[in-house]
Design a protein around this nucleic acid. Structure first.
Lengths: 336, 336
DNA sequence: CCTCTAAATGAGAGCGCTCACATGAGAGTA
DNA sequence: TACTCTCATGTGAGCGCTCTCATTTAGAGG
């Protein structure tokens, strides 16, 4: 018994109404009598009818799909955000297509964007993409609503961000309050908004305390953290504290320092950023700036849905980060 | 100038052929003269024509989409596999919809499966799902091709797996070869195939060496590893080596042992499983069993595509894991 | 009780594509 | 020359839905 799937006419017939009325029920059109609606709904249930997305999309050219472009497939943050988004979008009846792009391969962007265009995506959310890629998205997907996450806010799109600047500042201030004076900052990739903001927070805090700014250029990888850690350890005068732009860098730095017989936190205090699940279990447990990725993802999706329903004016939304103090930072001992 | 998007008739007109011929070119039908094909192709290029997915889907009821159901959104492994899959699928012109489900919330499965059904998904790949959920998928998405990854192979579907059993065995043998006799295994979730297989590998190796099996039940989380680590440290006779079913457990165990003043690897050697990016930078760097998630993802996608093209008989594919020796394991010292 | 308006419903077209089938042009055979 | 057969192309229908517009029904006002 290979029964044909029920369509809107089957439902209409069973409910003794026209196909159009069924369509109205499906789309929650107001002018349908409650009694009629009920009849239709029970027919739908009886036939196990489900609307055909493709047909609907064909006529409305809306796909009920949101595309998400992510940079940095190795990172915890984007993954966490993506998960939150996917969950939230599903609750609202949207599907999510996520595509990871390599920041350094323009081909991969073009491919990704191409795919989204083919799918008649309603909206695109970008996570931690460079301005350049966002630009490309804007040009190629003119008809889609765009929300950018973890990227420099723009006049054109909704932007959702963690207050990276604040995070950098509270992390640095925490170290200053512990008595540290010689504080190095290991920065994220120079072309990324997040890293820049965190650095600015660091610099502001250092300036306020009249301390010397000391920034080393990194990226988001553990390996780079390790390399930089070795350099730091080899200095004539080693800093007493380090603030790294993410937890991975911190892990790499810690490993390098430990190998060079520097103790954490006795000799050097360290603060990370992200609060990845592992951070609490590093040895020592890492003091870090917590980002609520879940909230960030939800916020971005909700913003997107609002824009899709009614095009309101753009907004820049932010979520405050919080400092989580663990074992890797301590009061500077006298004589250092 | 809000130009209407070009459709197949526009292309046909410009190329001076019928719409059907255009369709043939689009679908690589053999019986089209090269000259005609060229004409059509240049018309396509000139009009920047792109086929409308929805229309195509409406008539063929194939969506060119693969759904991926993932358990364990916090884990590195599934994320890495997903990324590999997404990339590979895109190369082949397929889109990927990934949905994470919580193993313990049946509602979330049903929701997820529902969504996939609405989208007329061509195929579903499950990653690390329990047999129960796979069953549900099978029932609800009867028309879709299914490939299961990291789940017990079934007679009905293609299965792609790391050789978890082998991994468990080589990890344990490594410890035995280092002279250890008192080796504990911290297992993954009891209802998961991967954890079971790894445990069996451990047990086999222990039996071969006539050693006493000592398994503790865990899950995949760092916190659980930590708890179990504390228990182990509190034993009257602490084991000299521990094999954990993933790197996260290892991290938790290491943290707990370190807090209890047990040194790694001097007092206790530890082997993990997965080789997450952080593992090499733990203190000490973690000896672990490497899984090639990338390869796994590619393999699953390729297998899926083969099935979609020509339904061949089912196959169970596996990828061998490799042991990566780092600092967390060492030769057992005399007198222990 | 009749008109007038608003609410509720129905009818038909068409979104862009592929499918099944019809047709036409050559090539080969008798 | 007439016939079949293959290859290349064209024609029309229809996938399942929403859109626009037409029609019916009900309720309000005089």
């Amino acid at each position: 018994m290979t029964e044909r799937k029920a369509n809107i006419y089957d439902v209409a017939q069973l409910a003794e109404v026209s196909h159009q009325t069924v369509s109205r029920v499906l789309n929650n059109h107001p002018s349908v009598k409650p009694a009629t609606r009920e009849k239709v709904e029970s027919a739908i249930a009886e036939l196990k009818y489900r609307p055909n997305q493709a047909a609907r999309q064909l006529v409305t050219s809306r796909s009920q799909m949101i595309g998400i472009l992510i940079a940095g497939t190795e990172l915890y943050g984007p993954w966490a955000i993506l998960n939150a988004m996917e969950r939230e979008a599903r609750l609202e009846g949207y599907s999510v297509i996520s595509i990871s792009v390599s920041p350094d391969s323009p081909d991969s962007w073009v491919d990704a964007i191409d795919q989204l265009r083919n799918l008649d995506i309603d909206g695109v959310i970008t996570i931690a993409l460079s301005k350049q890629i966002v630009k490309e998205v804007e040009n190629s997907l003119a008809s889609a609503t765009i929300v950018i996450v973890d990227t420099e806010p723009s006049k054109k799109f909704d932007a959702v961000n963690i207050e990276n600047y604040v995070g950098g500042k509270i992390a640095t201030e925490h170290l200053i309050n512990l008595g540290h004076r010689n504080i190095v900052h290991v920065m994220g990739p120079s072309d990324g908004y997040e890293g820049q903001q965190r650095r600015e927070g660091y610099e502001e805090a250092m300036k306020d305390a009249k301390l010397k700014i000391d920034v080393l250029q990194g990226d988001w990888s553990i390996g780079t953290g390790y390399e930089i850690g070795r350099e730091i350890a080899d200095r004539k005068i080693t800093p007493t504290a380090i603030f790294t732009s993410n937890d991975h860098l911190a892990l790499g730095v810690m490993k390098a320092l430990t190998e060079k017989k520097l103790r954490i936190p006795e000799d050097v205090s360290i603060v990370g950023f992200d609060n990845i699940p592992e951070a609490a279990y590093f040895s020592p447990a890492l003091t870090t700036v917590h980002q609520d990725f879940d909230e960030l993802g939800k916020l971005a999706i909700n913003r997107m849905l609002i824009q899709l329903k009614e095009s309101t004016s753009r907004a820049a939304l932010t979520i405050p980060p919080t400092l989580i103090v663990r074992e890797s930072t301590q009061q500077l001992k006298a004589g250092k």
